[in-house]
Design a protein around this nucleic acid. Structure first.
Lengths: 151, 151
DNA sequence: TTATTTTAGTTACACCTGAAACCAACCGCA
DNA sequence: TGCGGTTGGTTTCAGGTGTAACTAAAATAA
């Protein structure tokens, strides 16, 4: 194709990142869904609440990089399932205060190790040096991209 | 939270990959959409057709890692817009034969350089060594993950 | 205090997506 | 030749998602 820019999708970085991460996410998502009836958004919300309890929906949104609508819906579903509990902040009646319920912790205790296993399974393909570089590169790109998307 | 697995989302690899790649994709997608009225799926189809013409929808699906439903819809929209043309394979009347139209090439010639620019902008955050490692690591994970998801 | 603007969260709408059902054409094999 | 199974592609349906509009509460300003 003379005269046209040469763009080979398979070696195009944003494309590769996207496909890789989607393949990865979908594989994990399927497991969460089938075994625990959890969507990725729901699990992400639970994950942050397992790490830090009694935070507002807004803070969940920040920490999961989901937008507030997605969080609102995930929270609604998790409440219905009884995986989380919701209170109201005393100092600000608009804010919710979210935490995992007893039941929620039981789910969490099954899913979290599974997630970590999944990560290990992925990292198993890399040697120590590669892992270090990957972490470093992701850090750099993360900062650079997120900064830009904020602007 | 004693007794519970420690999972910090922000340092969890699949999560980081997913957020990074989504932030990236959305930024690009917005540009494609606003300036060219193209969705990511549509653009990906056009990208492979720019690289290799006269292939079937199934082959587009393979080369873009999209499923055949997504391709079918992207093709339908691209046909309506006149960006691509469709024929039928002589040896197999089920198969379509797709290629960019004159009009499609005009769009392609604008978007492809833009995409490459985008990639450069991203790579600009990394030095030569980091780029080499990133490529290598992506290759490895790509093969490993895609192999597994095939099974 | 009252008026204005901002923020937390929900709802409504229109779109996108994946899974499954479906149709037509092809293949393998008897 | 004909019959079961497979493959390319489309359609349908049931969710999921982002954007924008909305409500209530809080912060800010006058």
């Amino acid at each position: 194709m003379p005269g046209h820019a040469l763009l080979e999708l398979e070696s195009f970085l944003p494309y590769r990142l996207s496909v890789l991460s989607n393949t990865l996410s979908q594989a994990i998502a399927k497991v969460y869904d089938k075994r625990f009836d959890l969507s990725v958004t729901e699990w992400r919300a639970m994950a942050v609440l397992g790490y830090r309890a009694d935070i507002s929906a807004r803070e969940v949104a920040e920490r999961t990089a989901m937008d507030k609508v997605a969080v609102s819906r995930a929270v609604a579903r998790l409440l219905k399932k009884g995986h989380i509990e919701r209170g109201t902040a005393r100092h600000d009646k608009r804010q919710s205060v979210l935490r995992l319920s007893e039941e929620g912790w039981k789910i969490y205790d099954q899913v979290a190790p599974l997630a970590l296993e999944h990560e290990q399974r992925l990292l198993a393909h890399l040697d120590v040096e590669e892992r270090a570089w990957l972490t470093r590169i992701l850090d750099t790109l993360w900062k650079a991209e997120l900064d830009e998307s904020m602007r």
